[in-house]
Amino acid sequence: MTTLAELGPRICIMGPSNSGKSTLAVAIARQRQLPAIHLDQLFHLPHSNWQPRPEADFLQLHDAAIQQPHWVMEGNYSRALPQRLQRATGFILLDLPTPTSLYRYFRRTWFEHARHGALAGNKDSVKWEMLHHIGVVTPRNRRSYAALFDSIELPKLRLGNPRELEAFYRAEALQR
């Protein structure tokens, strides 16, 4: 298994919604003393109900963030992926099963009032659009995630189920 040290000082984390990207990014950031960058926070306006920023504003924030010398960045946003991967020194793909993501979505909206990667001033709630995204859109995206993972020539790590994710947390002494 690729180690955290092998992933370098600029780590890109991708995967389905509610797979644990934000929590992992914060754990790595804490362990390695890197800034954690949550792309949802750059894409959406704070104190809104997930209202997107203008595209040019998001891309400007994204491109400024990747120019930092050190970071762990989580989120997908494929339109900004080429420049992100060009700067990244390591890549992690979380590929947890759809039922796990659905469970985590309900848990976070119903019980976790303060969570990593949340929008400032926003309270999560169950939304039909997100259920559709997790249950219908994401399973179709898995092939593209797998192809992307195979094509990346950076040090990389694929965690495909909760057991593998938990083993990585233990092996690297990461704390949630």
Rank of each mutant, 00 (worst) to 15 (best):
K123N: 06
I134K: 02
M130P: 05
M1A: 12
P52A: 13
E166P: 03
L34T: 02
I152W: 00
D40T: 06
R158Q: 11
Y77E: 10
F43Q: 06
N49A: 11
R158I: 09
Q31A: 03
H70W: 00
I37C: 03
L154T: 10
Y105A: 14
V26P: 02
R84W: 10
M14W: 04
P155I: 03
I13V: 14
L157F: 13
L94A: 12
Y105Q: 09
H133S: 10
T2D: 01
R140D: 02
P139R: 14
R142I: 04
L39I: 14
R53V: 14
F91R: 06
Q175D: 00
A147L: 01
L39N: 12
S17R: 10
P46W: 12
E55N: 15
L61Y: 04
H38R: 09
L7Y: 05
R32S: 04
Q175E: 00
T109H: 09
A29N: 10
Q83G: 08
R79H: 08
A5N: 05
P97M: 05
N76H: 14
I92V: 14
E153Y: 02
H132Y: 00
D124A: 11
P155E: 08
G121E: 11
Y145L: 01
S17W: 02
R140A: 14
S101L: 15
L61E: 07
L165R: 02
R107Y: 13
P155Q: 03
R176M: 01
S125Q: 11
K156H: 09
Q86S: 12
K123R: 07
A5Y: 03
A65G: 07
V126M: 14
G117C: 08
R107I: 14
H44K: 09
H132Q: 07
L157P: 06
P162I: 01
G90H: 09
F149V: 13
H38Y: 13
E6F: 02
A5H: 08
L7N: 06
Q33V: 03
L42N: 05
G8E: 10
L94E: 14
F58T: 13
L94F: 07
H133F: 07
L96Q: 11
A171Y: 09
A173N: 02
A146S: 04
L154C: 00
T98I: 15
L165H: 00
E153C: 08
D95F: 00
A65P: 07
L81W: 12
R30G: 06
L24E: 07
A56T: 13
S17Y: 05
G135V: 02
Q51P: 08
L61Q: 07
L154E: 01
P52W: 05
P16C: 07
P54W: 12
V137S: 15
F91Q: 09
E172G: 06
P162H: 06
A118D: 10
T89Y: 06
H44F: 12
S101M: 15
L159Y: 06
L159N: 13
A171C: 14
H132E: 11
P54H: 12
G117P: 00
